Simulated scan of single mutants.
Amino acid sequence: MMAEGPLVILRLPKIRQAVIASPEPMLWFSKKRMELEMLLLESVSRALQCMDANGGVDSSAAILPEICRLDKVITLEVTQRMLVEGCAVNDVTDINKRMYM
């Protein structure tokens, strides 16, 4: 099983059926999740660069608010698509937290 790696997941019938039946939504979600992860890494990197001697983050750095805005835009886009596809969850904060898991 260890040698198969991620392919072992395809042994589970419901997951295999979802991957085979509709790969496009899963690829789209994976892309959005990767964008969020890249934004998180960039924000941590920028926060460390903009930190002053007391450990506070310099608020003059314009990139940090832009990263937060992009995070919200991506999360709203995922939420809207979930609602269109029939999902009952519409708590944006919960969706954002679960995307990072």
Rank of each mutant, 00 (worst) to 15 (best):
K97I: 09
R81D: 03
P25A: 01
K72N: 10
R69F: 13
M101G: 09
A3H: 03
E85T: 10
W28T: 02
L10C: 02
M101R: 05
N96G: 03
V84G: 02
V84I: 09
E42N: 13
P25Q: 06
L7D: 09
A21E: 13
M34K: 06
L27I: 02
A88F: 10
L27T: 01
G5H: 08
I74D: 01
V84P: 01
D94N: 12
K32W: 00
M38G: 08
R46G: 04
D52H: 04
Q80A: 07
L36I: 07
E66N: 12
R98A: 08
G56H: 15
P23Q: 06
R16P: 00
K97G: 04
L40W: 13
T93L: 13
G5M: 06
M34G: 04
L41A: 14
P25G: 01
Q80L: 10
R16A: 12
G5F: 06
N90G: 12
N96K: 08
K31D: 14
V19R: 05
A3G: 01
I63H: 01
E4P: 04
S60H: 05
R33I: 00
N54Q: 14
E77T: 15
P23D: 04
A47P: 05
S43D: 08
S43G: 09
L10E: 02
V89I: 10
N90F: 15
M38K: 15
K31P: 03
N54F: 14
C68A: 12
L27A: 04
L70R: 15
L12D: 11
A88E: 13
A21R: 10
A61E: 10
G86N: 05
N54K: 14
I20K: 12
T93K: 15
I95W: 02
E35D: 11
G5A: 04
V57E: 04
Y100I: 02
Y100H: 07
M1Q: 09
V44T: 07
L76T: 04
I74F: 00
V89W: 07
A47Q: 06
I9M: 06
G56N: 12
K31I: 13
S59Y: 08
V44S: 01
L7H: 04
V19H: 04
G5I: 03
P13W: 01
P65A: 07
A18Q: 12
K14W: 05
M99L: 15
